[in-house]
Design a protein around this nucleic acid. Sequence first.
RNA 1: GCCUCGAUAGCUCAGCUGGAUAGAGCAACUGCCUUCUAAGCAGUAGGUCAUGGGUUCGAAUCCCGUUCGGGGUACCA
Length: 596
Amino acid sequence: MKIDKIIHQATKNALAELYDLIPEDKQIQIQNTRKDQDGDITVVVFPFLRFSKKSPEETGKEIGNFILNKIEQVDSFDVVKGFLNLKIGNDYWLKNLISSYSDDNFGFISTNENSKTVMVEYSSPNTNKPLHLGHIRNNLLGFSISEILKANGNKVLKTNIVNDRGIHICKSMYAWQQWGKGKTPQNSGIKGDHLVGECYVEFDKKYKSEVEELIAKDYSKEEAENNAPSILAARELLRKWEANDDETVNLWKTMNQWVYTGFDETYKKLGVDFDKIYYESDTYLVGKEEVLRGLNEKIFYQRDDNSVWADLTNEGLDEKLLLRSDGTSVYMTQDIGTAKLRYKDFNIDKMVYVVGNEQNYHFQILSILLDKLGFEWGKDLYHFSYGMVELPSGKMKSREGKVVDADDLVEEMIQVARDMSEELGKLDSLTNDEAEDTFRMIALGALKYFMLKVDPRKNMMFNPEESIDFNGNTGPFIQYTYARIKSVLRKAGENNLEIDVNAKLESLSVKEKDLLKRIALFPGIVKEAGENYSPAVIANFCYDLVKEFNQFYHEHSILGEQNKDQLNFRLMLSATVAEVVKKGMNLLGIEMPERM
RNA sequence: GCCUCGAUAGCUCAGCUGGAUAGAGCAACUGCCUUCUAAGCAGUAGGUCAUGGGUUCGAAUCCCGUUCGGGGUACCA
């Protein structure tokens, strides 16, 4: 049993015996003792004073003596103000380390027949432009949260809904027809998604200038925006697409394919993947059927102009459009169809949507609509709502090309890693391929850690000039510590030093014990990350752990230690730190280099 | 207007299910490589936790008000 559980129970017993108090579990507060105090586990005694009718010091001493007598792991105690600080014996900590070291699955829960199946939707790009920094946050969060849910004993299905149809794609299509000059990824050497993205930007430029011209001709802003030739042409393409016009559908297929090939490359580079990909062009009609069924069953209503609406005023919300007056579907329609298909295709216990917080309202409504349509899982949807990535210049705008491009950013970071490694004279012993692979790991480690260490719910700032950093609280710092440990372990192996799990322990220094205590927190951290959907919890834990290891590493010699038991202990301690850090970082999708 | 989220060091962020003297990193300054990898370690400096009340033995953390900011409230996605 974990020591905090043991102390919790012992405190409960003490209260019953000493003060006839049967407390609620919440009243007993067990926490790790502060660094600056002597002790390991602390019981807060303030809440018990009105029952003991004694001073905090006296109450603490009484409870402390009781626990000291009953619990063998407790060596001594100390009462400071209202805090009862208990000192746990070295034997406990050593045993704890041995079991962590020996358990390959330490900190994780294996899946079994009772495991829930969780489907996680993430990425969900539009196919009219390449991925940018905002998508990177989404992809990294989606991948990481999937890994974290797996580590918590869930079966996880990663899914992606590709928004492959709609007016935005038609804009790129029209621009390509007009100004594309027959360019293809093959004949231009431009990555497919970027080529299509260029068309989109081109469209917006033309469109804006047309609107200005019309306004100069005394059109109102709204009239101008609705009558610019390019937007009319894009709408015509959308109409033709919905009417299954051959030429239009073929162009759509071709350009989407360019984009998919480009996305695949970016996904691969980011190290994210999917178990099942849905396409909006396949799901929107299913959604439309559901909406019409809802209309039939009087769940929704139709207005005079034929548009279909859901009245959510009873829920304290507005009325929501589900089908336009021309019968075409909107975003919500599509999401209803996709949800239905997913539950038909898989036996899903829980659905998680990794989508930005700008869509909070959308998912609140989606949940209600699915529920109204009779899908019992509707109200259980979980919208994992994350904050935006902001640039020093403000919000990113794809249309204006004002974005940090995902591919460019990754390449740039790899170059920084390369330069830095050369400057530091690292990796000279590696082959070219090995070195390149390491640069890639470091660059992605930096990027991923940077994006994942902050609370997902909050907006975050990315400054291209300053955010690319490999020192301090960064991924590379954690990778570096790991590589350092690996280096020591390699040298131990060369000297035929095997780790013996039966070894004894002479003494425990402050730093050694700090590390042991930190390691022991890992299972709870994994659980917390899962419950709160927060990769940041894992990231911060990894940082704290390696920070502590580096202090230990600086103060103690591992291989130079003369005492055999102590040397063995330090090797085991280091190996465990390496394994725990690797597991933690893997939950973030970050690879760990053996050397750097 | 209404709904919703946020405000912690110069900057980027932890800490928030109430506990002891609010922590990191970056930037600035100072030490430490003949010793297991200096992408490291140690130190100096930097705070009215936006603001005013309230609850409590105890509030950055919970409640209410105010200010400022983000997002939503589209026949966009």
